[in-house]
C-alpha cells in the first residue's frame, strides 16, 4: 500500500467529521459547515468513500440511537493516525506556500 499519498478532500473531511459518531446526512452537513459551504459532498461519493474506509478500518459503524435506523460511523485509531499524518503534510504545503508567496493577500 502506498502510505505517503495525499488523502482526497472528501476523505480528509469525512475523517475529521467522524471524531463524533455521525450518520451520512450528518457528515454531509458537517462538511458543508466546516468548509463554509465550499465542499458539498454528493451522496454516491460519500457512500463510496465510507465503504472503502470501513474496509480499510479507518472508520467503524456504531449503533445509533434506538429511535433511528440510520447507521452511524466513527473514526478508529487507525483513521486518526492517517488524519494526523495528513495534517503534517498539509502543514508543509501551507508553510511552503506562505514562505514563497508571502502569505494570502
Amino acid at each position: 500500500m502506498i502510505e505517503n499519498i495525499a488523502l482526497t478532500e472528501a476523505v480528509y473531511y469525512i475523517l475529521l467529521s467522524l471524531t463524533e459518531p455521525l450518520h451520512g446526512y450528518g457528515i454531509m452537513q458537517n462538511i458543508s459547515s466546516l468548509s463554509g459551504g465550499r465542499v458539498n459532498m454528493a451522496a454516491g461519493t460519500l457512500y463510496g468513500a465510507l465503504t472503502t474506509m470501513l474496509e480499510k478500518g479507518w472508520i467503524k459503524a456504531v449503533d445509533g440511537d434506538n429511535n433511528s435506523r440510520k447507521k452511524e460511523y466513527q473514526i478508529t485509531s487507525a483513521g486518526k493516525a492517517v488524519l494526523e499524518k495528513e495534517l503534517i503534510r498539509l502543514n508543509e504545503l501551507v508553510n511552503n506556500g506562505e514562505k514563497i508567496l508571502g502569505g494570502i493577500k
Binding site: 482526497t8 478532500e9 472528501a10 465542499v39 458539498n40 454528493a42 451522496a43 454516491g44 461519493t45
Partner: peptide, 16 residues
C-alpha cells in the same frame, strides 16, 4: 432540499 448530485469528485464520476 438543495442541489442533487450523486458524485462530487472526479474519481467517483470515472467509476460510474
Amino acid at each position: 432540499d438543495g442541489d442533487f448530485d450523486l458524485y462530487s469528485d472526479i474519481d467517483s464520476k470515472i467509476k460510474h
